[in-house]
């Protein structure tokens, strides 16, 4: 399945895919070191360390529309940044990985930002409806941890199930935005719809 086409030669497409894969590898490595095998890590990872790892891993199961620049994985965090140094911790365990650019745009600037993943924190959800409305045609994976985030038109919403972090996915919203979500990802998620019941 081609990731990119017209503006790039097949060679550069391959290079980009390779870069993404490499990046993802290190991210995944870090994640596993801290989540899957707690005994190997010093402490049990915090909620937002897990969520940060999930954010990075989402990129491995999402295809952005062709033509999207994917040299750097750009993650925008709107509202209060709950992650602290979680990203630095994860990425620091995988030195030499492709850069992940974390941006903190103001809620008002959202329609103009160029991100792969847009995380709307719970504290930023006052403007949630507007932001989701303004970005619903942009090729950005919207992720949030507000209650009913996905049902409100977001694509991926973190939830807690049996004390574990899981997620809901609004696949309609992703499709509208031109993103293709891997079936493997969808299988792990609770699928919801705009305005549909949980």
């Amino acid at each position: 399945m081609p990731l990119l086409s017209l503006p790039f030669s097949p060679k550069s497409v391959n290079r980009i895919r390779l870069l993404i894969q490499r990046l993802a590898m290190f991210v995944g490595l870090g994640l596993l070191l801290c989540t899957a095998d707690p005994s190997a890590a010093q402490d049990k990872p915090s909620e937002y360390q897990v969520k940060a790892a999930f954010l990075l891993n989402f990129a491995r199961f999402v295809e952005w529309p062709e033509g999207t620049n994917q040299d750097t994985l750009r993650i925008c965090i709107v509202g209060n940044d709950p992650f602290g140094d979680a990203f630095q911790t994860i990425l620091g365990r995988a030195p030499g990985s492709q850069p992940v650019h974390i941006m903190h745009p103001a809620a008002a600037d959202v329609p103009g930002v160029d991100c792969h993943i847009l995380f709307v924190s719970d504290s930023g959800s006052r403007e949630l409806a507007r932001i989701l409305h303004q970005t619903h045609h942009e090729p950005m994976l919207t992720v949030g941890d507000a209650d009913g985030f996905a049902r409100a038109g977001g694509m991926v919403g973190f939830i807690l199930r049996n004390n574990k972090i899981r997620f809901q996915i609004n696949s309609t919203a992703a499709t509208h935005a031109g993103l293709r979500l891997s079936a493997k990802l969808l299988r792990l998620a609770e699928i919801v719809d705009d305005g549909g019941d949980d």
Partner: peptide, 11 residues
Amino acid sequence: TAALVFDNTED
């Protein structure tokens, strides 16, 4: 793979 990455044993 996804189950491993997202630590989802049930899946």
